[in-house]
Design a protein around this nucleic acid. Structure first.
Lengths: 349, 349
DNA sequence: CCTCCTCAAGACAGCGCTATCTTAGGCAAG
DNA sequence: CTTGCCTAAGATAGCGCTGTCTTGAGGAGG
């Protein structure tokens, strides 16, 4: 029933024509103020009479008005979005980080754009390029390693960035994480404390953090004079329970005297524990095993797995809080938050 | 080196002023065509001279132009976004579905807005309300149950919707999944085939799908005259390995004669297997156990877990393909795709 | 009583695109 | 050679908001 609309808007608009959704103009009209005032009222800008604010809010609720994010982003030159990039969604670890991020940011009216770059710097760069077009308010990234082009894009964007999982103390860098080296070293000391002499490092999915763990572990063993490079087993293959079992078999076949193993993550350790049971190799009697991340299942298997508990939820929560502060141009008392880690000693060692 | 073209834009714009990013106008200028032609060229609209298209593409690449999604969405009244809602991100199951969805949609230039509603219909409704404001091209939802308000919002949006995980054959409904009832029944038949007589169903996180599985399972047992309601153990608690162990302990204490258990998912079964080992209860000799979903670890534990393999990647991939067809207004040969399931028999039964 | 100041509310313009209409050529038919 | 039709390219307008300037009313000060 629309008449030719031309210059003036249609005389009676129940609801805007293009999308069938109410617009700010509808809210303004039905609450008897101008659109700008309605906009300000809904955004909580202080200069609006509280009485008008409640009128506008009511009208919006009645109409079921929800701001059009595209229009808002276009007019204000930035969206209400935070980009969060992780190297993998298959790893429970990052899911927990993302959940914590959501918990902090969604109540603030921000949206989280999740990107999974499958451990590929090229994919990460592409995601950054595409997501920057959304004019996000800030980015939460995993680790510090990325392509030069990606770094250039990020620098040019001048957006707040918080990097997660690792630590660095360069000026102007914001991060939330823990020292992967220190965690690796803690595992080494634990195995040494247990009297182990032939201690191996088994790793897959060799990202920067896995390498850092190995580094800390190696240094601690070297310090004790018990480092044997032949006992470092690494594969770029994606980490999995199956790979853990296979790597364990190979290791123990070639080095029957191994009496302690640090797995770069729990998946591998799970596979090894299952395989050891199948081969009749007693854990921890013959071999102590330690995992990394302390996934939920680790506390329940037989033997229960010793692991480094990483505070994923903490990391997500604090990184999100940091980015919020940066958006509000608040001073951060600590640009680089160390959430630490915890060695959870269980039956497997 | 452009001169002021007519009203009064800045005399020389290297790059647009507001955001520091190149705009379509920049691309148009540097390739010597009008902005509309540039727009059409970049969108692959056929009416543009191929020669011009490549000129525009080159200019865009040189400038590092990426379309402003907000402006595009505002002008065209819809975004390049597909909303995907899942009840939980903590469950590996849904992660695999989402990854498959990404794999199909990202190459098409679509973005995926992920929402996790934590099994709460209220949260789901809120997500739908907020995400509809983005004017997505379509929605991928989990299951059929949702609040009336949510259903009304969806209906009013007139957007393509594909529902995942379950099946229904109502007209105008698009779905990709499998029969949860049939899967439950298959497990029951398997346990009956193994000669089990006292067969229990242990379930947590009682969503619609868990109940459907239980229903199929129960009917099959009733059919065999071996259904005992006392052997159904359900808790609304979130499913976990720990809960599985606890429920198993309680079940076996109260019903020492149980000789077969169907767990509504693998997590619970894992916990039960670990707990049984600890209690010296032999699986499958004394009790057969069957899980659901066939998570990766199930194939590796001791005993290896019999489970229903669900084709998560298939579901995601096909649901995404369906929504693509719907967007393009293509006829779907099959509005309701049954991807089936597979009983993987292993040591635990 | 008038001026100056403050501040809430509104007018105005424009963000960067695309839908739609219009125009300019090119070509076949008469 | 004209007419009409087609197609490719451009002109125009406007999506729904918000940044910024302007207005006007009320209060303080001389």
């Amino acid at each position: 029933m629309s008449t030719g609309n031309h210059k003036k808007p249609s005389p009676q608009r129940e609801v805007s024509r293009r999308t069938g959704r109410p617009t700010l103009a509808d809210v303004a009209e039905s609450s008897g103020v101008s659109p700008i005032t309605a906009s300000r009222a809904l955004r909580g800008i202080a200069t609006v009479d509280p009485h008008l604010v409640s009128k506008v809010r009511e009208a919006a609720a009645t109409l079921g008005y929800v701001v059009n994010p595209a229009a808002r982003a276009l007019a204000s030159a930035h969206s209400q979005t935070i980009v969060a990039l992780v190297p993998s969604l298959s790893n429970q670890l990052f899911i927990e980080v993302l959940e914590a991020i959501h918990e902090v940011l969604l109540p603030q009216g921000l949206e989280v754009l999740i990107g999974d770059y499958h451990y590929s710097p090229d994919e990460e760069e592409k995601l950054i390029r595409n997501y920057l077009a959304h004019r996000p308010r800030g980015l939460l990234l995993t680790g510090f390693e990325r392509s030069e082009a990606a770094q250039a894009l990020l620098a040019a964007s001048r957006l707040p960035i918080v990097q997660m999982m690792e630590l660095a103390n360069a000026p102007g860098v914001f991060c939330v994480g823990f020292s992967q080296q220190a965690a690796g070293a803690a595992v080494a000391r634990h195995l040494l404390d247990r009297g182990r002499k032939r201690i191996a490092y088994v790793a897959a999915q060799l990202d920067a953090r896995v390498m850092q763990r190995g580094e800390g572990f190696r240094h601690a063993l070297q310090h004790a004079g018990l480092h044997d490079p032949a006992l470092e087993m690494m594969t770029p293959a994606r980490s999995s329970v199956a790979v853990g079992g296979d790597m364990f078999s190979e290791l123990i076949t070639n080095n029957p005297d191994v009496d302690g193993i640090f797995f770069c993550n729990d998946d591998l350790a799970h596979g090894a524990i299952f395989e050891a049971a199948r081969q009749g190799i007693r854990v921890p009697q013959r071999i102590s095993m330690v995992g990394f991340n302390d996934l939920p299942i680790s506390a329940h298997m037989t033997p229960r797995l010793t692991s480094i508990r990483t505070l994923r939820a903490d990391i997500g929560q604090r990184a999100a809080t940091q980015i919020l502060s940066l958006i509000k141009h608040e001073k951060l008392e600590n640009p680089c938050v160390d959430v630490g880690f915890e060695l959870i000693v269980r039956e497997s060692s």
